[in-house]
Amino acid sequence: MKKILGIAGIFLVIVIATSILSPNFLTAYNIENLLRRTSLFGILSIGVGFVILTAGIDLSIGGVVCLSGILTPYLLNQMGWSATETVVFIVLMSVAIGVMQGGLVAYGRIQSFLVTLCGLLIFRGLARGVTMDQTQGFQGKFSELRWIGNGRISIPGVEGFALPAPVLSLIVIAILSMIFLNCTVWGRWMKAVGRSPSAARYSGIPVARLQILAYTICSLLAGFGGLLFVCDVGSAQPSDFGNFYELYAIAAAVLGGYRLSGGEGSVVGVVIGAAVMQVLRNAIVLISWLPDTAEFAVIGLVILIGVLADEFLRRYAANRARTQAKGT
């Protein structure tokens, strides 16, 4: 709870600062845009949160986003598949990717960093190879499918502002994730696996299966995210679609209170973390004296400050708890 307040505070500070520094920030158009980007990246971040919870990491997200984002228009236009067939294929493919990567981590005992780093390269390579590096687009068709990414839901009585459709996906995914993590045995056990894999094993918890489940959820959300992204922008270039998205996702999760050592994190925190990331990127574009080219430097710096502040607070709290406990 305290952690969520922390990240929410950072969020407010950045929002207030940017709205003072740029008159274009609090416009209906910009807010709508921010909501859309936050929802899309938030879905990826919620996904990677599951893997981080089990003390793993998934670097392949950008590759999966690319593969799914490229294949969606490719299957529709080049292969002539129907929208349903395409979506079912993307879902099955994402699940298969997650099961394979999770299996290599859980049963092959290979470090998740390595498995998913290879995944990142393989999936992007596949996307580029299949399409011969040609940009894939919807060519103005399939507007029903594209609605999930670029749709706008008008609010009765509100002019000039509409709710971006991906917000719906984010809300549904966030609620389901929260229910899973907080109310189910598997959710509780997934946290236990991240806290102490060996204690989990000695408690009869199916450690390997839960790890695979975490990677599967992550890849599924990455694949779904790729679908939403391409539906939003309309076309995708195999060489750079989804580049660095895994890092945005991981950064949002860490900002939102997930610990890379596993066992700790909340869905609400991750969503706010994703929002912080998007507002930051937006601020760099909007604030005239900040060069756009410095985007990565600014984001890196803010994340570092956030993580340092968090670590500092954690140590302070732990020390206090320990001193109090000594007395008893």
Binding site: R188, A192, R195, S196, S198, A199, A200, G263, E264
Partner: peptide, 13 residues
């Protein structure tokens, strides 16, 4: 400490 408990979690968990 290593195999029996999740040390950072509560007694309840």
């Amino acid at each position: 400490q290593r195999d029996g408990l999740m040390l950072e979690d509560s007694v309840r968990i």
